Amino acid sequence: MVKAIRVHRPGGPEALQLEEVDLAAPGPGEVQIRQKAIGVNYIDVYRRTGAYPAELPFIPGHEGAGQIVAVGEGVDDFDVGDRVAYVGALGGYSEARNIAADSVIHLPKSVGYEQGAVMMLKGLTAQYLLRRTFRVKKGHRVLIHAGAGGVGQLLCQWARALGAKVIATVGSPEKAEIALKAGAQHTILYREENFAERVKEITRGRLCDVVYDGVGRATFPASLDCLAPLGMFVSFGSASGPIEAFDINLLAQKGSLYATRPSLFTYIAKRDDYEDMAEDLLHAIKRGHLTIEAPQSFPLAEAARVHAALESRQTAGSMVLIP
């Protein structure tokens, strides 16, 4: 038996219930991980509310880090005692879990468990956004919404290291300081300022090559007004609610723009791609292009309180649950 957070019906933070559940031995192709830290992400909120449906009851959580305590049949690349991190199927909010070995990577000793738990989903999201969806290069002008958030800070850091001119929107002066420290050269208080007009001022009318938007409804369609002709709008999250259907001719009217709604799980579906992306991420950390700050940590039993803070957008940076 292990302690885990389960959801029996979609709802608010109170839907997260701490329970004891059975944990079987790992099956073929699986490893069992005794978790040291569990990443908390906005996708966990979407799962809990039913916006991203899951078969009930379920244990939320898609990333974590810990030590392998058992190995299933057919697993050759991992051994008992290995330090690992993962992003993968549901089941993260638990003291221990089984997961497909294909979802796991070796965690270098130079990266702590708490950092490992938050570098996977957020770090690999930053990797595919900056290196695959739109390959940021020196001189590109980049707008990052929610620049003080967990993914936002990583995007600011890495885009700056790649030589981009980084503009970030934030919700408060305190969050502006966080985004600036992360690498943004300019910040915009989107609740007080017209961010599209400010982008025009900051870029002297040249606008941006790409907009990375994890906010959603509150920042669309004004984000399109921040893009230069042939620019790309990348919607990777919906913290303020999903973007409603829109007339695709709007993209032509605003400069033959591109728009995409990518997902990490599509990018890491093939093991080779997953390994390459993780290697690139770890290399960026080693070179100092990316610093995974120590996340805020909370007991596993306080998952509901953490979700309430995350939904109210009162948080900055990354958070982990500690079993």
Rank of each mutant, 00 (worst) to 15 (best):
L224T: 03
V21P: 06
F58H: 10
A24I: 01
A25H: 06
E311D: 12
V118I: 15
W158A: 00
S103V: 01
P295G: 04
G183I: 07
V142Y: 07
G74S: 10
D209M: 11
A4C: 09
P57D: 08
G74F: 05
G241W: 12
I285M: 11
L282M: 15
E201A: 14
M232S: 12
E174M: 08
E311R: 09
P295C: 04
L230P: 01
Q296G: 06
P53H: 09
M1I: 01
G150N: 02
G163M: 08
A15I: 00
E311I: 05
Q253Y: 00
R204W: 03
A51Y: 14
G183Y: 01
G150I: 07
P26V: 03
Q17H: 05
P221T: 12
G66D: 14
G255K: 09
A259T: 05
L90A: 07
E192W: 03
I202R: 09
A316L: 15
F220A: 13
A284T: 07
D272H: 13
D82W: 05
R6A: 12
I202E: 09
V215C: 06
T187E: 05
A70Y: 03
V80L: 06
V211M: 10
L207A: 09
G231A: 11
A259I: 07
I292E: 06
A159Q: 04
A303V: 00
A54D: 09
L189N: 07
S312L: 04
R97N: 12
I59Q: 07
L107F: 08
V87I: 11
Q115P: 00
V118K: 05
A85V: 13
M277L: 03
D102Q: 09
L257N: 02
L230G: 08
P323Y: 14
A245I: 04
G29S: 10
E174Q: 08
K254S: 03
R34M: 02
G11P: 06
T291I: 14
G11Q: 11
E302Q: 15
Q115M: 10
A304S: 15
R305H: 14
G150F: 04
K286N: 05
V234E: 02
L180P: 04
V40R: 10
M119Y: 08
V40D: 12
E279Y: 11
I99T: 10
D102W: 01
Q127D: 14
A182I: 14
A24L: 10
G116Y: 01
G64N: 02
V211P: 03
E73W: 07
L300K: 00
K36P: 00
G163S: 08
Y267P: 06
A222M: 03
T125M: 14
A301N: 02
G72V: 05
Q127A: 10
E30N: 14
Q17V: 13
A308C: 03
L154K: 06
Y190F: 10
G205H: 06
G112R: 00
D76R: 06
G39L: 07
D225E: 14
E19G: 07
N41G: 11
V306I: 12
P28G: 11
E14C: 04
L251P: 12
T260L: 09
L251N: 04
D79I: 02
S235T: 12
I243Q: 01
L189G: 08
L180R: 11
E197M: 11
G92A: 13
R287Q: 13
P295K: 04
K254F: 07
R160F: 05
